[in-house]
Amino acid sequence: MDMNGEKVINAPQALVWQALNDPDMLRASIPGCQELERTGENGFEATVKAKVGPVSAKFAGVVELLDINAPESYRISGEGKGGVAGFASGHADVKLIPDGDTTTLVYTVNAKVGGKLAQIGSRLIDSAAKKMANQFFTKFSENLEGYTPETSSKAAD
C-alpha cells in the first residue's frame, strides 16, 4: 500500500520537528495509540489499537527513526503484530519544508499488512490508512497549539 500527501501545519519548522520527535506528542496524536515509550535514542515501543473494516486488533510493535536530518527530514519505520488479526509494517518518509511561521509536511508512506488484516480488510486498507493519516494531522495540529518542547518527555530524560 502506498500513500502520499502533504499538510500545512501552523507552526515553524523547528517546533514541528521537536514535536515529531516527542513521544508524548506522538502518543497523543496517533489515533488509537495507547502506549509509546522511548527505548533508545531513536527507538520506541508502541501499542496501537486499530480497526480496519471488520478486523479490530491491538498492535504491539517497535518504531524506529532512521535517516535523521534534523530539522528537515527522517524516515519513521515500524512493524506491529496484532496476533490472529495479522501484522502491519512499513515506513513513512517525512519532510518538513519551512514557509515563514508555517511548515509544509510532505509524507510518503509505504506499508504492508498480512494475515487476517490483509485477508479480510485489504479492500479497506487504503481508505483506513488515509483516515488515520488525516486524524493524525488534525490531532497533531491541535496539540501543537500551546505546545512547548519543555513539556516533552525528552526534557525529562
Partner: peptide
Amino acid sequence: YDPESGQLITGSFMD
C-alpha cells in the same frame, strides 16, 4: 494474491 506481499486479498465471502 497481492503481487508484492503474496497476501491473499480475496480471502473471505466479502471479497
